[in-house]
Simulated scan of single mutants.
Amino acid sequence: MTTGQDRKRPGRPPGPSDTRERILAVARDLFARNGFDNTSIRSIAGGAGVDAALVHHYFGTKTQLFAAAIHIPIDPMTVIGPLRDVPVDQIGHVLPALLLPLWDSEMGKGFIATLRSLLAGSDVSMVRSFLQDVITAEVGGRVDDPPGTGRIRVQFVASQLVGVVMARYILELEPFKSLPVEQIAKTIAPNLQRYLTGDLPGLG
């Protein structure tokens, strides 16, 4: 005999672990095929055969779901969000001061491991989409001067930061690997700021 306690809760299919993994699998596929902007929580839920509310229940926001889909151990918006309150002429200085200590932390080890996996796998399109759809949307519009240069300015910044990750954490070049994070952040900050707000050859 089925009691009230035995009945499934509405919207909660059996096997929560399987359901979570099914949502992640669909999310990875849709993010890779359609990009971050063109993938909705509703479409992911539909593909996984669950209610959209259940996706939010397991993962929270779309950026948190994206982070889970590519195994980034932190919500990207914890870094991107604070930049909204940073004056444009300071973003290049604040960004490395936020990222370098994070990459050097225990949590950062998970990020580096994920990056190694992505570089060796086929999920690069997801990261490219996230960079173009989210980072550029958040920062690019603020540095789009002259008009039309915001996207490439953000990509110049990304190239510098990816270079730091490669040299310090992937290739582990010495003495760069052992430099204090504050020294690296202060050294690259003026260059990042120039990419964002300075004159760049051939732009404009």
Rank of each mutant, 00 (worst) to 15 (best):
T3E: 12
D6V: 03
R7Y: 02
P16K: 07
S17P: 01
D18R: 15
A25G: 04
V26A: 10
R28D: 04
R28Q: 14
D29I: 01
F31H: 05
F31M: 09
D37T: 14
T39C: 05
T39F: 09
S40C: 07
I41E: 03
G47T: 14
A48G: 05
G49D: 09
G49F: 06
V50N: 01
V50H: 08
D51P: 00
A53V: 03
L54Q: 12
L54C: 13
T61P: 04
L65E: 10
L65Y: 05
F66Y: 15
A68H: 15
H71E: 15
H71I: 00
I72L: 15
P76Y: 10
M77A: 14
G81H: 11
P82K: 06
R84H: 08
V86L: 04
V86T: 09
D89G: 09
D89F: 05
L95H: 02
L95P: 00
A97S: 13
L98S: 11
L98H: 08
L102N: 02
W103M: 08
W103H: 06
S105M: 11
S105Y: 09
G108E: 03
K109P: 07
K109Y: 10
G110M: 09
G110P: 01
I112C: 02
T114A: 15
A120G: 04
A120R: 13
G121V: 06
S125D: 15
S125P: 01
I135V: 15
V139D: 05
R142L: 06
V143M: 00
D144P: 10
D144R: 03
P146Q: 03
P146K: 03
P146M: 03
P147C: 02
P147G: 02
G148T: 07
R151Y: 08
R153K: 04
Q155W: 07
S159T: 13
S159N: 14
M166T: 08
R168E: 01
I170P: 00
E172V: 11
E174M: 02
F176L: 12
K177G: 00
L179Y: 07
E182A: 06
Q183T: 06
I188S: 06
P190I: 00
P190M: 00
R194P: 04
L196P: 08
T197N: 12
G198V: 08
D199M: 01
P201L: 15
G202V: 06
